[in-house]
Simulated scan of single mutants.
Amino acid sequence: MSRGPDRSAGGVVKDVHIFLQNVNKNYAHVDYVLESLKDNFDILFFQEPPWRTIRQTVSTTSAEGDDVVGAPKHPDWLYMVRLPTDGLNPCVMAYVHRHLACLRPSMRWDIIDYWDIFVLSLFTFKGAVNLLNVYSDNAHTTINLLSQEVDSLLALAHMGGDFNCHSEVWDPACSLHPLVVQCLLEFTSDISLEWAQPSNPGLTYIPHNPDLAGSMINLVFMGLLSERSDLLRLDPDHHGPLDHVPISTLVPISESKIRISRIVISRESPEEARFFVDLATGLWALTVEDLSSPDRIEVAAVAVAEIFSLAWNAHAKEVVVTTCSKSWWDN
């Protein structure tokens, strides 16, 4: 019998246990994980899941039957995946244990509609808890997309996946810090997440070819939900035949609130109108007669910046982004 999620004395689900792995389209391994981890985990986040013909079903047009295509299914797990579009198979999917049905787990394609990003929402008495499953290819497509869509994201409690991103920040054997890493770190900072170091550090990608070096490209980012240091662990016991090491994460979902704020001027608001009036007035009154030297250009630039700063500070206000917000610009 499944252990069920950890609950408080009042029956409130306190945390969820997430198993995360790039399964490299290995159908047999996913089938094994579904059965072997049904009593230990609440959510399975997979990258590069298998997608193949499972069986044939009765057809009115073919004697051989119609193909039933997909990933493995199991009676204890809710199967959640975006179906293929334009010939592109899904690169991320989730299995949610049926004992979490009370939290109404939902795929949120309304937030980001992209086949390499999976947003899972759980609805607690304090509101939605949003968890992100990510696969980013070698061209860093998903990282770049997330950076562009930061204003549309809800508050997140967890973001994990295969980022295909090498950096000295999380891999002491790596001397690189490419621009895409800075892009990723700025994005996570904007949504108040931090890279979570496993309590048992090690490589997360171990190539089968012994001539190739291992690395740390499977990552988890979490909010400041707990001071405990044992929330995240590498899980070599369930590594299987794959070259990606699973990551096990315990995510608190009810003991703390996530608070994210931004200083904004709401679009099409009276404050925005007054901001533009003050800005135009200040710039119109600015006297710039001589820009013939670097020093004079710098003086003019400082004056323009001061006008923008005064107008902004006069009309901007702090907005707290909650789990129900749709944009940093919400009132």
Rank of each mutant, 00 (worst) to 15 (best):
residue 2 S to E: 08
residue 5 P to N: 10
residue 5 P to Q: 08
residue 6 D to W: 08
residue 7 R to W: 11
residue 8 S to M: 14
residue 9 A to N: 15
residue 9 A to S: 15
residue 11 G to H: 09
residue 17 H to A: 10
residue 23 V to D: 02
residue 31 D to K: 12
residue 32 Y to L: 14
residue 34 L to E: 05
residue 35 E to A: 11
residue 41 F to D: 05
residue 43 I to R: 00
residue 45 F to G: 01
residue 46 F to I: 01
residue 56 Q to S: 07
residue 60 T to D: 11
residue 65 G to T: 06
residue 70 G to V: 10
residue 70 G to E: 07
residue 70 G to W: 02
residue 72 P to F: 00
residue 78 L to N: 08
residue 80 M to V: 12
residue 87 G to I: 13
residue 87 G to A: 12
residue 90 P to S: 12
residue 91 C to H: 04
residue 91 C to Q: 10
residue 94 A to K: 02
residue 94 A to F: 06
residue 98 R to L: 09
residue 105 P to G: 02
residue 109 W to R: 12
residue 115 W to D: 07
residue 121 S to H: 02
residue 126 K to P: 00
residue 130 N to G: 05
residue 131 L to R: 00
residue 134 V to Q: 06
residue 136 S to L: 03
residue 137 D to F: 11
residue 138 N to V: 04
residue 142 T to M: 08
residue 147 S to C: 15
residue 149 E to F: 07
residue 149 E to V: 09
residue 151 D to H: 14
residue 153 L to D: 00
residue 159 M to R: 07
residue 161 G to F: 07
residue 163 F to Y: 07
residue 170 W to L: 01
residue 172 P to G: 13
residue 173 A to K: 15
residue 176 L to R: 12
residue 186 E to N: 11
residue 188 T to G: 01
residue 190 D to V: 01
residue 195 W to A: 00
residue 196 A to T: 01
residue 197 Q to P: 00
residue 198 P to S: 03
residue 201 P to G: 15
residue 201 P to R: 14
residue 203 L to D: 08
residue 209 N to V: 12
residue 212 L to H: 11
residue 212 L to M: 07
residue 220 V to E: 00
residue 221 F to G: 00
residue 223 G to N: 06
residue 225 L to G: 08
residue 228 R to A: 10
residue 229 S to M: 11
residue 232 L to A: 03
residue 234 L to F: 03
residue 241 P to Q: 02
residue 241 P to N: 03
residue 242 L to K: 04
residue 242 L to W: 03
residue 244 H to L: 05
residue 258 I to V: 14
residue 258 I to S: 05
residue 259 R to Y: 13
residue 260 I to T: 13
residue 262 R to C: 13
residue 262 R to L: 13
residue 264 V to E: 03
residue 267 R to P: 05
residue 268 E to Y: 15
residue 271 E to D: 14
residue 271 E to H: 12
residue 273 A to H: 09
residue 274 R to Y: 06
residue 276 F to R: 15
residue 277 V to D: 03
residue 279 L to Y: 00
residue 282 G to L: 06
residue 286 L to K: 11
residue 287 T to K: 15
residue 290 D to R: 14
residue 290 D to P: 12
residue 295 D to W: 10
residue 299 V to F: 11
residue 302 V to H: 11
residue 303 A to Y: 04
residue 305 A to Q: 14
residue 306 E to W: 06
residue 309 S to V: 06
residue 313 N to I: 04
residue 317 K to F: 08
residue 319 V to P: 03
residue 320 V to I: 11
residue 323 T to E: 12
residue 328 W to N: 10
residue 329 W to H: 10
